[in-house]
Simulated assay, not measured.
Amino acid sequence: MAAATLSLLNIFSIKNPNNLKYFYSLSLLPLKGLHLSNNPRKFTSSVTISSTEPQISLNSTSVNEELESYISCSMPGKSRKVAVLLSGGVDSSVAPRLLHHAGHSCTAFYLKIWFQEDYENFWSACPWDEDLKYAEAVCNQIGVPLEVVHLTDEYWKNVVSYIIEEYRCGRTPNPDVLCNTRIKFGAFMDAISTLGFDYVASGHYARVIHSSSEANGTSRLELSGDMVKDQTYFLSHLSQGQLRQLLFPLGCIPKDEVRKLATKLELPNKERKDSQGICFLGKIKFSEFVARHIRELEGILLEAETGNFLGKHGILVLHHWYDTGPASIVAA
């Protein structure tokens, strides 16, 4: 475990830019106690799309010429059945247009992973209904079917409860890594496993290079074309079994170009801001959420070099904000 961790840190070290070319998936996080469904289909529910015909022309010469230069990460020339994860955001909404232009047959899926906590105004804090409306509008525009997959229980059991337990033990798990590994490309893949999809696609900024033998070859996770928005770190725990089923259409495109594409494609959400934070918390502070489930302890902050007293902290807040900060801050 230690060797694998050092290897991953070395790959992402700014001091070693030559090591940033690519890396293989590292399964550093064991999926202990992972809860998956034995009846995948029960999680899906159809969303009524107003028409199976696109509301706009998908054959515009100028638009198609524009898209042609952006589909290198969409496996062009190979017609496949692709399940596209749609969040209602701009990035995931551009993905199905690229995949369609590359010749694939797409079905969009919206993952419903919110859960109820008795915070005041909790539901308005995480606008999942607004996300779903945008997802529907995007699918209506291009004539792509949309289904909702209910993974609330899976999200709680495999992500939220794990985070709480890790904080209880004094460790700091990454919610995005867990969500990608256990939900988006874990429980979701399990839920659609009998539906005959060749690949699952999302709006992540990363690239997957598949070997010529799609059936049992090695798939390699590589850095995206945008080093600022790159999300390969959050995908680094995916297994070979997961990577072999993935497509990341935005992996070859810088973020600012994706925004421009959304405008040229006249997407309904082209002006929508990028989402920030953890959706299931909404406007609730992360430390407040964890403290709700774990008793908060008070500690002190000392300067490592001098031992000088710097102040006090709530131990949960310390884990969240200072874990990757300067080494000169020490908790006691």
Results as ranks from 00 to 15, higher is better:
Ser57Ile: 13
Phe234Asp: 04
Cys106Gly: 09
Leu247Met: 11
Ser93Cys: 11
Lys283Cys: 11
Lys312Ile: 15
Glu154Met: 08
Ser275Val: 12
Tyr70Ile: 02
Thr194Met: 01
Glu65Cys: 12
Leu20Gln: 14
Arg97Tyr: 11
Asp131Arg: 04
Lys21Tyr: 14
Val228Ala: 02
Asn158Ile: 13
Val228Lys: 10
Pro17Arg: 04
Ala95Asp: 03
Leu243Arg: 01
Ser27Tyr: 12
Thr61Arg: 03
Ala304Val: 06
Leu281Asp: 14
Phe234Arg: 09
Asn158Tyr: 07
Ser69Tyr: 05
Ala187Tyr: 07
Pro76Ala: 12
Ser45Tyr: 12
Ser57Glu: 14
Leu146Gly: 12
Ile209Leu: 13
His320Ala: 03
Gln231Lys: 13
Arg272Gly: 06
Gln116His: 15
Val228Thr: 12
Ile49Pro: 15
Leu99Ile: 04
Tyr167Met: 11
Trp123Ile: 15
Glu303Ser: 06
Glu296Asp: 06
Asp176Pro: 01
Gln276Glu: 12
Gly241Leu: 08
Pro30His: 13
Gln242Asp: 01
Val47Ala: 06
Gly196Ala: 06
Lys157Asn: 13
Lys229Gly: 05
Ser287Ile: 10
Thr263Gly: 05
Ser50Cys: 14
Ile183Cys: 11
Tyr233Gly: 03
Gly325Asn: 07
Leu111Lys: 06
Ser62His: 14
Gly277Glu: 00
Val47Met: 10
Pro17Ser: 03
Ser211Ile: 02
Arg182Lys: 04
Gly225Ala: 15
Met227Glu: 11
Ala95Tyr: 00
Tyr155Gly: 10
Glu65Gly: 02
Ala215Ser: 11
Leu267Gln: 03
Asp256Gly: 01
Ala191Pro: 00
Phe185Gln: 08
Val94Trp: 00
Tyr134Ser: 11
Lys184Gln: 06
Arg80Met: 15
His320Leu: 15
Ala201Tyr: 00
Ile113Phe: 08
Tyr119Thr: 14
Leu8Ser: 12
Arg220Glu: 02
Arg292Met: 10
Gly103Phe: 05
Ile71Pro: 01
